[in-house]
């Protein structure tokens, strides 16, 4: 798939997220927007989605550690045909299977996530099993940057290295913002590359809004017995100047005026991508 095509798909999903958030008056819109190019790269290029759909034992595994951005994952799963798009209308509604944070009830979701710092340990367990079973499956876990303050991640980072998990890839959505403000003010976590390297990981960095770079970082040849971390530099609220780089958009429902502007911004970018 061409880069512009992937970027377009990600922008269209941002439009879907916007509608989901407006309808439900709920959802973590900022982090959803920042992570979509990464989700699209994984679901439309890197992973074999058909294998996931038929629950093949050798399917790739994906864990949404930043479960609060379930809305973005749902728009991707719906577009990939895991469930009907109409189901998105039930997001966060009474008795829906689409809680804000994903659960196993959602087709395509391996494990419930949402309490931060849980995804990496889960992914380590999956990767150990796949490795022992000599499965060709890869395990991908998508983490936020704020959740790097959770100690359980570092317990899991040690274990991933100890067990030589060359089938494990973690991607961090590095947008430098969390609910209270800058990640570096709330709890400095920078030098992530050096930290994970010291824990025995191979580390790569890329522009998290450039699918070609994301795919190259994740899929290029790698060391066979080391877990891989991809630090994807992103912008929280990517896609519209209304939200971009503003911590206040971590969890916010746009006003009607903001909604119109965000929608117009996203549509304009889609038009631009199609004409390039």
């Amino acid at each position: 798939m061409q880069t512009n095509e992937l970027k377009t798909i990600a922008m269209e999903r941002r439009l879907d997220v916007l509608e989901v958030v407006m309808r439900s008056k709920s959802g973590h819109i900022g982090g959803a927007m920042s992570g979509l190019d990464i989700l699209v790269s994984l679901y439309y290029v890197i992973m074999d989605v058909e294998k996931i759909k038929r629950q093949d034992p050798d399917r790739d595994r994906f864990v949404m550690s930043k479960g609060h951005c379930g809305d973005s994952l749902y728009t991707v799963l719906a577009d990939c045909g895991f469930f009907a798009k109409e189901l998105l209308e039930t997001y966060a509604a009474f008795d829906t299977i689409l809680a804000e944070h994903p659960t196993k009830k959602v087709p395509g979701v391996e494990m419930a996530t949402g309490a931060l710092g849980h995804g990496l340990p889960l992914a380590v367990g999956m990767a150990i099993a796949c490795k022992n079973d000599a499965s060709p499956a890869n395990v991908y876990v998508f983490m936020g940057d704020g959740e790097q303050a959770e100690g359980s991640n570092w317990e899991a980072a040690m274990a991933a290295s100890k067990y030589g998990l060359g089938n494990l890839t973690a991607v961090i959505d590095r947008n430098y913002l969390q609910i209270s403000g800058s990640t570096e003010e709330v709890m400095p976590i920078d030098n992530l590359a050096a930290k994970y390297s010291a824990f025995g990981w191979q580390v790569k960095e890329c522009d998290g809004h450039e699918p070609a770079e994301i795919i190259e970082a994740i899929s290029a040849e790698r060391l066979a017995d080391q877990p891989l971390l991809v630090i994807a530099r992103t912008t929280k609220g990517y896609g519209s100047a209304v939200m971009a780089n503003k911590a206040s958009w971590h969890h916010k429902t746009p006003s009607q005026e903001e909604y119109k502007q965000i929608k117009a911004d996203l549509q304009e970018q889609i038009r631009g991508l199609r004409h390039d």
Binding site: R61, M111, V124, G125, A129, D133
Partner: peptide, 10 residues
Amino acid sequence: GVASGLASTG
């Protein structure tokens, strides 16, 4: 967490 990840694979 690791135990649960293992269990998710059967």
